[in-house]
Design a protein around this nucleic acid. Structure first.
Lengths: 223, 223, 223, 223
DNA sequence: TATGAATGAGGCTTCATTCAT
DNA sequence: AATGAATGAAGCCTCATTCAT
């Protein structure tokens, strides 16, 4: 599985570059929240690349720039890191479709803005990493997935339904399957996500084409 | 993660229903291909439920009705079981869209037959189990996923494209985004698959509705 | 460790060469003593090459031309094979130094005959294999080594002492350390044996030279 | 096989003689090189007693005073311990025969000093343990045995040859087989070593006699 | 006798977690 | 807070032995 998180592990030797001899010898003591973020970033990479069981605390530690034992100053266990990681990753989205619609004079423009937003949110490497984790290890955090389903995924469909209803009422959208069952408008991203998760990286050009085709579909269904 | 494979593990005691006390104690010596199938069935269940690393050879053995050591008379390692499992699961599909189209007088009927076939192929519990493995552990068998992508997934889209082209040529289908980019017609199943993989089992009624909505979409796009 | 036992494992396919269709299918049922010898030969090779623990019943069986289970028709356990093997290998030598002396008119001739006999007995590949086993695994069969020490090794030194005493009495040998402590006359073979066991095969030419030097030593000590 | 290494395993409880109850419970965290030495000492005992395969990591760990897992903080595998062990044991000897000769006014004295040194080097329990390993498991470390053969064994014979040549030149030694083929002067130790390896411990008195007989042989050959 | 699938005990190794420093 | 040696609980795999055929 290609590692979808290309950020470099912090170089453990780079501390030594400092000219300060005290700092050279001193252990790196960073503010807790910075360390926390480093650890969760590292954990996302490792968990997604290897899965929960195969991920080793050593790997996470190394990528986060500290030692295995050091992790335990910040998290009590591997499970706790995993949960914290997904809690952060699944924090409710701030996508406001009504605002997006308001900002988009005509429907064709909205279709584009909307689909672009979907791809930007879901097809980024770290978003794909999270989705891989949800598929592979979601059973470890049923409360979080359930909450995310309710607060984010279903909320998005509900928002979309309201926006489309108003669009139809205003005579700007054609009523049809898509306005009655708006999830169908999201389906193509799901197809792309699944493709990426199973087959790994498609080239960017192909992704752009698929995105444009998705936009065209939305336009055709709502025009 | 809800176990998507409800079939019971062969109960090792259930053989003892026999009245023959000798048979009660007898070791099972089965033909190699039968054992093979039992083992791969068991492995699919366990791997999909837990992932590769967390899967225990003990569990697979118990589910297959033999001892841990016994597995090694049939497969040389956990990895080999995994690969054999996916090799079997990803054997090329025999879906023949042209035949399906021929059997379906009108386009509306074809849409239904086609979508039903998709759901029957992809939403069965064991098919979902395989797809979960592809997402979670596909990196272990890149050659198999690549071959499956080429032989099955892309072949399906190509078939679909040919069928739709003829349909358009015959005047039975409307040309549109969907006929130009047939993957869009598949996207809703992907959405459903991803939903199942992430959120676990939706009730059957809901699934039926989504399937019907998918059919309606296809009809609207091709009518 | 180079395998000091070059004899080929019996080819398991060679049974099929028979034109007799019955025999072709029939399992090879050999006279018990033939099988026995095959098994012990195979066992000597495998035990010496790998040591007792690392030797696998499968390997012994394969080299003996039957299946693992088949071994158990002839021996009850791995230990039993090992003991039978050493019992056979350590059966008392028939070396008769008095006869050798009688056959050797002068002392110089006796020295040569005697040393040659030592090398022929102790430096053959299978004799070295046995000696390796005695060093590596002798603790498994203390009764056999003790008996061999008494019946063969010390008996040889005692024989030699008697022969040399008579030789001195006859005025054919010079009295000296060697006639008082005849083990010193044997020591050079021990050196060669140890060398072979530790460093593996020396070339034949080198061995011949060492043997001649040994003879020269004996002559110098007794002349 | 009689354990040739009588040193006691460090008793993990014996530290508790301390009156400090805190120390009683404390984990031992020793300097790496100390642990290293403890482990290799333990390994020599266990490997020599049982052979490589039959040696248990558990036993080595217990004898070294830590847990099985703890071994792996210092060595990556059983093989690595074995190699490190022999690398240490086979480090080139510092025996300097020329110096020994210089320190020994007459030849008779040199013979004694030289033979004593041989026995002190080769007949100590741990030296015998190493030699047993070389015979039983030398195939695992062919590079080390080859190097030892060259750097130590053959170097010794070469040194001896030079010393004897000068001794002859000075008129202090009689020229003979032994001065031409000095390995013959070493042979009696080989006999003793092989005897010990095969028959286990002879009593000390017997060993002393054999040593004196060896010295007498050397004197007789060189006088 | 011979076969080889099956068993079950046990070994090497890994790794989350702890803790002395 | 940080380190890393140490622990101890598994897990994968091997292999002597058994036994149905």
């Amino acid at each position: 599985m290609p590692n979808p998180l290309p950020q470099d592990p912090p170089d453990r030797q780079s501390r030594q570059d400092s000219q300060d001899p005290a700092a050279t010898r001193a252990r790196q003591r960073l503010p807790a929240d910075v360390r926390n973020r480093q650890i969760l970033d590292a954990a996302l990479a490792v968990f997604s690349e290897r899965g929960f069981e195969a991920a080793r605390m050593d790997d996470i530690a190394a990528r986060a720039g500290l030692s295995k034992g050091g992790l335990y100053a910040h998290f009590r266990s591997k499970d706790e890191i995993f949960e914290a990681l997904l809690r952060r990753a699944l924090s409710p989205s701030d996508l406001d479709l009504a605002a997006l619609r308001a900002a988009s004079p005509d429907m064709r423009h909205f279709a584009e803005a909307f689909v672009n937003r979907l791809y930007d949110d879901l097809m980024r490497p770290d978003a794909l990493a999270v989705q891989r984790l949800l598929v592979a290890e979601g059973a470890r955090i049923p409360h979080l997935t359930a909450q995310w389903q309710h607060d984010t995924v279903e909320a998005l469909v509900a928002q979309l339904k309201r926006v489309l209803a108003r669009c139809v009422a205003e005579g700007n959208c054609r009523a049809g399957v898509a306005t009655r069952h708006p999830w169908l408008l999201l389906a193509p991203v799901a197809y792309q996500v699944l493709w990426q998760l199973v087959f790994g990286k498609a080239d960017d050009a192909a992704l752009q084409s698929r995105r444009r085709e998705h936009i065209a579909l939305v336009r055709e269904l709502l025009a």
